[in-house]
């Protein structure tokens, strides 16, 4: 309970200080300023700007606000002109509450930033035995000029308009071009290596054809004979005439890209002779698989891969 009382005293003390502050402004008991609302921004104010203030007063009866002594609309004080004043009155039995809206417009023509102020106003009260008044303090703000001092002609202050500098993208463009080229070449290479179709140039070589045909053959004795025929046709086509085992050296000297497969080619001719002429039974399935590998390798040689 004691604590509660202490808190109440502190609160009352604070209220007393607050009232004292307001009383300091009004300095009378018959009227008091309830609130003063100033513009939110006190800097960057430029010529022509309109600033508003609102003051709310409470006046005890029998006093009331004197209408004749209100600030005059159009009065200019230090380049700040009162452009509008409006009063709203709310009356009760004992007090009258006034809400006064003041609108000022700044007409200063100075060329340097300077401190101006909304002027202090005085509101007189009538109706009572004493001549009382309520003072509204001045409100200072920074005025920002629109133009620098000494500007005579606009031309002197004109600057040449430069086109904004563009960011240099050439290096990126070059990189993009190079990488795109590499990508395309790589893709073409992959297609060239792996594709069986003939929709790219140089893809219709003798061994490419043979490889395509071999893939369609059955894995039996008939297929084996046919596969050997296709392979021989491919060799003959590339050689420009019939190619036999005893002419392999001449063939390889004419087509050096096949040299790395010389052993495989020799083995092929031997297998072919065995199958076609010696009639030795061979494992057709295995032979066909070998021929598939060989034809693919020869196709790669043919394409220079």
């Amino acid at each position: 309970m004691k604590k509660f009382k202490n808190k109440c005293y502190v609160l009352l003390g604070m209220i007393a200080i607050f009232n004292g502050a307001i009383a300091q402004e009004s300095k009378i008991a018959e009227a008091k300023i309830i609130s003063v609302s100033n513009p939110l921004q006190s800097h960057g104010i430029q010529v022509g700007d309109v600033l508003s203030r609102r003051i709310v007063l409470e006046v005890k009866a029998p006093y009331q606000l004197s209408q004749q002594t209100l600030p005059m609309k159009g009065v200019r004080t230090n380049d700040v002109e009162l452009s509008q004043i409006s009063i709203t009155k709310t009356a009760s039995q004992k007090v009258i509450r006034y809400s006064i809206d003041l609108r000022y417009q700044v007409f200063s023509a100075v060329f340097v930033p300077s401190v101006l102020q909304l002027p202090a106003e005085k509101f007189a009260l009538t109706g009572g035995p004493q001549a009382l008044s309520v003072n509204l303090p001045a409100w200072k703000f920074w005025f920002s000029p629109l133009a620098p001092k000494g500007m005579n002609k606009a031309r002197e202050n004109m600057h040449m308009q430069f086109k904004p500098t563009l960011i240099d993208l050439q290096a990126h463009a070059n990189k993009l071009l190079v990488f795109s080229g590499m990508l395309i070449v790589g893709l073409l290479g992959l297609v060239y290596i792996n594709a069986d179709k003939r929709w790219l140039p140089f893809m219709n070589g003798a061994f490419a054809k043979a490889h395509r045909k071999l893939k369609k053959l059955p894995r039996n004795t008939d297929g084996e004979k046919q596969a050997l025929s296709y392979m021989h046709q491919a060799f003959n086509q590339l050689h420009g005439g019939n190619l036999f085992a005893n002419e392999l050296n001449r063939f390889l000297s004419k087509h050096p890209s096949f040299v790395k497969l010389s052993k495989e080619i020799e083995a092929f001719f031997e297998q072919s002779n065995q199958s076609l002429f010696a009639q030795n039974t061979q494992n057709s399935e295995q032979l066909m698989a070998d021929l598939m590998i060989l034809s693919r390798s020869l196709r790669d040689c043919e394409r220079g891969v």
Binding site: S229, H232, L276
Partner: peptide, 13 residues
Amino acid sequence: ILNTVAVPAQAKA
């Protein structure tokens, strides 16, 4: 003749 006549014969292949 040896250069042109194929073996196995192309017609069959």
